[in-house]
Design a protein around this nucleic acid. Structure first.
Lengths: 341, 341
DNA sequence: CTGAAAGCGCTTACAG
DNA sequence: CTGAAAGCGCTTACAG
């Protein structure tokens, strides 16, 4: 299609290898030669063919990004991760192949087996995620955002959901709240193996027990139209609760209007704490105090780990042990909690 | 890394070309040979190397998808397009390279010049979009979602924003409304060349004039925290208005809570019509009658046009003229409008 | 400082 | 029905 390295070499009056080395800088070139090469590149509009380069170098400079769009998950929350990942990839010279196939394991086999990518980021990882064993057997390194049961061979990054729960419960306990409602992710998410759901819930329950307070955990609804009724049912069932923790994106998104319709003022009648990202809060104009879920930093860390595995920096052991790293969530105070009456 | 076609050939006791033809089905293979080949493929876990195949066939089976994430645009609305595009791409055998670079023209030059992609979809196209001339000069076909000033050489798909405006205005006029407020995209979007903004607004203004009714067009705010005050200011300034048209994703997203806080009931005090997608309405629990912006179909059409350009179906002229196609929006009645008092 | 040539792993005319 | 070989466009030891 376009000009090849041979065209450039001819135009510059040098060999193809000289053009290649001028491009890569892997050996010294005289100033005059370099100038002629780059002039030829410029006038011809040459860009090296990616397939040929990949074949020769065994590097595609592409990262795979695997997403799942379950209908009971809340898509806008995923966007924050995607942006952090594509941006970090570019900064490191990588493009991103976006894969949203319903059959994740097959898609993963396809892009790794064919060598389309130099590494893979798995998003929204389940406790027993069928993509994980496939990724482990692949010839490319893999990083996940989300904690699988077996982290063998993967670099794993996730929010410390247990710590998030403890901080949120402690924050409310310190304010004197003795009865708290928690709205967790939908039951289907737990059933499927969305471990972040029970990691947060179980830690919250345990902490509440330790503090001697009552914590009622309920699943939220997945389908937006059903959320208002579900929230109302939960609050009706727990009339003594003075605080609400929302670990459920879809519920958080619609909570302001549900509470307004119910005539509940925050924090006057109810203290509210969420768990989501600042970007999410901005998108949905959520006015609540929240534990920051840090999608940007998590995506960034996953990509950087991948990049280091693909190309270990000089002086680093290329075969360093896999890493599992948790981010401790910040609690961002927006004033939606106050001392219990 | 993994096994090559030579390994398969050796294991099956045939030549490499036979393996290749067994894979592509481009010539007849005896049953026995075919079986041995596929057994070898299976036991070795062979997948053809994408770079080598691309080099030989000049086809990568990858489509580029170019997004812009301006801070004054509302990211969740973009997701609907992305999903329609990746899904349609997969159905047609293509993967998607997601490109979110701030420097769109450079990114486009990079992925087309290097032959990483067989075609490109441009999203969120501006009136004078700097990516368009780059795409026109590329060796790969391009399709856009969104209408540029110059469509030369591109397949273009967009909502018929003029028709959308006319339908919405006529709907309200028929109900007896004589004074209407329109909230358009932010001023920055107009300034940058977001033609969908003025295409809708100008058609609405024209139609209102034709019908002899008053229509006040205002720009919405881009920054979510500023939206409530902006909406209140507009409604304060137009006390006689009985209907509101919202062509602004960020404003639509937060409108229910703003109107609730203002004590305005819909449609009792105010008739409201939006312009967005059903998926967007679901995500934000928007209860309003709306003109469907059809991101799924538009993304699908763009990909299908691209696929046909890349591989013209047998019996089709491969050099068919470029297409510019508008989708007429459906008006989905959610009961948020009623006869003017 | 530079060039000639092998090799990366496929596909596809060409031959039989 | 099948094989030997050229070619796709790069990179990189090997030589000088």
């Amino acid at each position: 299609m376009g000009p090849t390295i041979a065209d450039v070499a001819r135009a510059a009056g040098v060999s193809r290898s000289t053009v290649s080395y001028a491009l890569s800088g892997k050996r010294t070139i005289s100033d005059g030669t370099r100038r002629r090469v780059f002039e030829a590149i410029e006038t011809l509009g040459f860009t090296a063919n990616a397939g040929a380069r990949a074949l020769a170098t065994r590097r595609t400079m592409v990262l795979g990004l695997l997403l799942r769009f379950e209908t009971d998950e809340f898509a806008p929350a995923m966007l924050q991760y995607v942006l952090g990942i594509t941006e970090t990839a570019r900064v490191n010279g990588y493009d991103v192949l976006l894969v949203t196939d319903h059959d994740g394991p097959a898609a993963l086999r396809r892009i790794t087996g064919s060598g389309m990518v130099d590494g893979v980021v798995l998003l929204d990882v389940l406790h027993h995620d069928p993509r994980v064993p496939v990724l482990r057997r692949a010839h490319q390194p893999g990083a996940t955002v989300g904690l699988p049961a077996d982290t063998e061979g993967l670099d794993v990054f996730d929010l410390d959901f247990g710590e998030a729960a403890r901080r949120v419960v402690d924050h409310l306990t310190a304010l004197g709240h003795r009865e708290i409602v928690l709205i967790s992710p939908p039951e289907q998410v737990f059933g499927r193996g969305g471990a972040y759901g029970w990691r947060f819930r179980d830690a919250a329950v345990e902490r509440a027990a330790l503090r001697g307070i009552r914590l009622h955990a309920h699943h939220g609804e997945a389908d937006p139209p059903r959320i208002p009724a579900a929230v109302n049912a939960v609050l009706d069932a727990r009339p003594g609760a003075t605080a609400l923790i929302v670990h459920n994106d879809a519920t958080a998104a619609t909570l302001p209007s549900v509470l307004a319709a119910r005539g509940v003022s925050v924090p006057g009648d109810l203290s509210v704490v969420g768990l989501y990202s600042a970007g999410f809060a901005r998108t949905f104009s959520l006015p609540y105090t929240f534990a920051e879920s840090s999608p940007g930093p998590l995506g960034r860390m996953a990509v950087e780990a991948l990049v280091h595995r693909i190309d270990p920096p000089a002086g680093t052991a290329g075969n360093a042990y896999p890493v599992t790293r948790f981010i401790a969530p910040d609690l961002i105070d927006r004033g939606s909690t106050r001392p219990a009456r």
